[in-house]
């Protein structure tokens, strides 16, 4: 489940970090609102218990054992938003100190395990346990929540790995990152998670949280309002937006060159055309003008790399001086 460094292309890693940025921001805002100054020790300790829970082997029928991620267990104590941060912290510690999962892939791992998993589990539980459930329905809801959450996270991993040959292959068809297409990754992840890991998570979630229902229910997270409300709102928005999305085509909004604008609008704004020619880099194409032979061109590459690095170092140096002051 933890994707190591080198499995995903830098583009995929960038997109998933970017996808997690608003989630982290929102989680931090929500947590700050509810926990105030208490947040640091509480998040730290909950991240620590998340880490410890992930180390436990859970026995399942058939004589084998497996590790659980614990996303739904943590969400049942802290609520889904604080769980995002708590699991992200635990995953960061695992990646940095224990080499479990990568640093470049941390955004992806957090997206799968710290975001999709707790939210999926949280909502599945509240859908099944809506109303006034008895002990048995709660147990079943927890079991299914753990099972579904684990399998959704596994599906996300399968998709992230499976799209690599599509988006990053060399011209001769050689894969540059994870080599298997979606037709292999999805069945492989589905088989192992539907049959085994999903079951471990389901049993683990049901046994821990239902134990708390019997002993200390007051410690469980209680949503301030109907937990299903945001889900309904999101569903309605999605239903409205889906047909619109199907209609959309062409370049991403705002990323038009003047040529494209001309085809869209029928004309290209004169100001844009003027601005387009305004900036041509000193070394277009990382080359020194006039250095055309292969030997000189290589030298041009090296010189432009050296100059680029020197400029950035200079910027860091100046920033450092100002900061110190």
């Amino acid at each position: 489940m933890h994707i190591p460094d080198g499995y995903l292309s830098p583009k995929t890693c960038g997109v998933l970090y970017a996808a997690m940025a608003p989630v982290w921001y929102l989680s931090a805002r929500k947590v700050q609102k509810t926990l105030h100054a208490k947040q640091i020790p509480l998040l730290a300790l909950s991240a620590a218990f998340t880490f410890v829970i992930m180390m436990f082997n859970i026995p399942i029928p058939g004589g084998t054992t497996g590790h659980m991620v614990g996303g739904v267990v943590v969400a049942s104590v802290l609520g889904p938003w604080a769980t995002v941060i708590s699991l992200s912290l635990a995953l960061t510690i695992q990646a940095l100190l224990f080499g479990d999962g990568g640093i470049t892939t941390l955004g992806a791992n957090c997206f799968n395990m710290a975001f999709l998993m707790p939210f999926a589990g949280y909502y599945v539980y509240h859908i099944i346990a809506a109303g006034n459930p008895g002990q048995r329905r709660k147990w079943v809801a927890l079991f299914i929540a753990g099972y579904v959450a684990m399998n959704i996270a596994a599906l996300a991993v399968a998709v992230e790995l499976g799209i690599q040959p599509l988006i990053a292959s060399s011209p001769d068809g050689r894969p540059l990152y994870a080599p298997y297409p979606l037709s292999v990754t999805i069945p492989a992840m589905a088989a192992s998670h539907l049959m085994f890991f999903g079951l471990v998570e389901a049993i683990g979630t049901a046994m821990v949280v239902s134990y708390v229902f019997k002993t200390n229910e007051a410690m469980l997270y209680k949503p301030a309002h109907n937990p299903l409300k945001p889900l309904w709102i999101a569903l309605i928005i999605l239903i409205i937006l889906t047909p619109l999305g199907l209609l959309a085509k062409g370049t991403a909004w705002g990323e038009w060159a003047s040529e494209e604008l001309k085809s869209i609008l029928g004309y290209a704004p004169a100001g844009l055309q003027r601005l387009e020619g305004l900036w041509t880099s000193i070394m277009p194409g990382y080359n020194i003008p006039g250095f055309d032979s292969p030997m000189k061109s290589t030298l041009g590459y090296v010189v432009s790399a050296a100059l680029g690095s020197a400029l950035i170092v200079l910027t860091i140096y100046i920033a450092g001086r100002i900061w110190k002051r």
Binding site: I40, F51, L89
Partner: peptide, 14 residues
């Protein structure tokens, strides 16, 4: 800050 505290308390909980 939470990250360094997490690391410290993992040892306690473990």
């Amino acid at each position: 800050a939470a990250l360094s505290m997490t690391f410290r308390y993992i040892m306690v909980l473990i």
